[in-house]
């Protein structure tokens, strides 16, 4: 199935693009997608996921809503990966 992954702020700079369309296994979970992205983008693996508690700082949204790592994705989903927010 196809999904769209969007990157924001520092993660966008690290990956070097703001979004990409990816072919991923049907029913992949958010957590599995993160593993997939770590392999695809070593810079994310080294700069974002290098620490022991490597998911602590990473926010993920699915179609514009915050999502948990065990949730399964569907064809056409838009997943965004971004650092802790700092608005205001």
């Amino acid at each position: 199935m196809k999904i769209r992954v969007r990157y924001f702020a520092r993660y966008r700079s690290l990956v070097g693009k703001s979004e990409e369309e990816l072919e991923v296994p049907d029913g992949i979970t958010v957590g599995e997608l993160i593993e997939f992205l770590k392999e695809r983008h070593p810079e994310l693996k080294n700069e974002v996921f290098a620490e022991e508690d490597d998911l602590a700082d990473v926010n993920v949204s699915r179609n514009g809503r915050y999502v948990k790592f065990d949730e399964a994705l569907q064809d056409g989903d838009v997943v965004a990966i971004f650092p802790p927010v700092s608005g205001g």
Partner: peptide, 9 residues
């Protein structure tokens, strides 16, 4: 807003 809204500075 500071906790949840996806804005980065």
């Amino acid at each position: 807003v500071k906790r949840r809204v996806p804005v980065w500075k």
